[in-house]
Amino acid sequence: MKEAENNPIVSLIASIVSPFIMLFGLYVIFHGHYSPGGGFQGGTLLAASIILIRLAHSSHTGQLQFPAKLGTPLGSLGVLIYYGTGLAALWWGGQFLNYAFLPLAEEISLRRSWGILLVEIGVGLAVMAILVSIFDDLLEEEDHD
């Protein structure tokens, strides 16, 4: 974006608020089974906390926190976790994404709980990485012209 002077108040407030947004995003991801929220919302909150640091500080600080070249590999890893869970259920004899066939626990309900948690971690990782990399791609051309 435009070269704005580094405002200390904005930087301080962003530094204070950003970890709490990140913590709330993790809470939303890990409590997605039985409360509103889930992988998409939690991933968006994580991306919002990272984008807040990138907006308030210099771009160098944002790159230290989450390097831009990490976006595509992390997004791909999230998609792989999602499809890996589904294909693992397929491998152990069930249907695609049928968590009851995953050999994670003894009870069926616990198996479903762990399966949903795995899928939501994958979705959250993919959404966070892709949203941050969209933001980086929007800002990237500025350096060249």
Partner: peptide, 26 residues
């Protein structure tokens, strides 16, 4: 619809606004 409202608040109020402001500046 708490889940839909949560998604709308996070995406529409948080990330979309940042993206649109960046696009306006560019």
């Amino acid at each position: 619809a708490v889940d839909v409202g949560f998604t709308e608040a996070v995406v529409g109020g948080g990330v979309t606004g940042v993206f649109l402001v960046v696009l306006i500046f560019k």
